[in-house]
Nucleic acid binder design. Structure first.
Length: 286
DNA sequence: AGTTAAACCTGGTTGC
DNA sequence: TGCAACCAGGTTTAAC
């Protein structure tokens, strides 16, 4: 489920409501992809700092307040995997207690401003404690990530340069996330369609003009998705339970056999790197 | 070194 | 209706 837009929508939903929230407790459900990496009790009494996003990861900084001074207590690195979502529930001092956890609710962060609950049926997601973003295990998980797509320092020329020498299909390069992060299967397909580039094109065959066009298409696609709440295929919802709307305006993803909105050719499905790729053979060129 | 499979886990859909 | 096979938003790890 969650690609960059869904993660960013989630970040925006929890950042302000949980700013400075005091952690009152932690509840763990079934095991996620990796263990938490610290004792739950270690988090109690800390306060939440500004929630950040790196790629498809969220970073929830925790500060320990010792009298007047605020000492870093590390933070939580959260990944939503394929089927995860976060919900912000009432609780603590703000209202009625949160509903009891369901069978797929695997992590609760109970605070005085509500309970942050991770629901993840497939359990590919994770909540991992680290002393800092640039220290293990966070640094190890983030080490291979490419540029942030909205980083203006990541220029079309830099993107073009990063694609040189890679004969892997451009779709697979976008998915790998070691050049630029954020696109998963939906938005990789959509960005390539918007750019008019065939997904099987070897990355190194993209010249500076098409590379620039693809980066711009990726930015427009991701920004549009963030603006309308991301995509909800099945599991995803924002922290208030609302669904995204992008899936309704996808041009090719999940639309095999239906006409391309740009040129009316039937959308085709192929498999690349064990994933379905949707594209239009009429207006996406190798 | 660069690319490609296998693995993690659950649930919904499709087909016999 | 029952059941097997296949599919799904991601990423790490091991193997060609």
């Amino acid at each position: 489920m969650p690609e960059l837009p869904e993660v960013e929508v989630t970040r925006q939903g929890i950042d302000q409501p949980l700013r400075d929230a005091r952690v009152l407790g932690v509840r763990l459900g079934k095991p996620l992809r990796w263990p938490l990496g610290c004792r739950a009790q270690q988090l109690v009494g800390t306060r939440l700092g500004p929630v950040q996003r790196r790629g498809k990861y969220l970073w929830l900084p925790l500060l320990r307040t010792d009298g007047a001074a605020a000492a870093p207590a590390g933070g939580l690195l959260v990944h939503l995997g394929m089927s995860g979502s976060l919900a912000l529930l009432s609780g603590g001092a703000t209202g009625p207690p949160p509903p009891p956890p369901g069978p797929h609710d695997h992590f609760d962060l109970v605070t005085d401003r509500g309970t942050l609950r991770l629901n993840d049926p497939r359990r590919f997601g994770a909540v991992v404690h680290a002393p800092a973003l640039d220290r293990p295990p966070a640094s190890r998980l983030l080490a291979r990530l490419g540029a942030e797509p909205f980083d203006q320092a990541f220029t079309p020329a830099a993107f073009h340069q990063a694609l040189r020498g890679r004969r892997t299909p451009i779709k697979a390069v976008l998915l790998a996330g070691d050049v630029v992060v954020g696109a998963g299967n939906i938005y990789a397909c959509e960005a390539l369609h918007r750019a008019g580039i065939h997904p099987a094109t070897p990355a190194r065959r993209l010249g500076p003009r098409r590379a620039a066009r693809l980066l711009e298409a990726l930015r427009l696609t991701l920004a549009r998705a963030v603006a309308i709440g991301g995509s909800t295929l099945r599991d995803f919802s924002d922290v208030h339970g609302a669904s995204g709307a992008y899936q309704a305006e996808a041009a090719v993803y999940g639309r095999e056999g239906r006409p391309c909105p740009r040129c009316r050719h039937p959308v085709r499905r192929i498999v690349q790197a064990q994933r379905s790729t949707y594209y239009c053979p009429g207006c996406q060129r190798p």
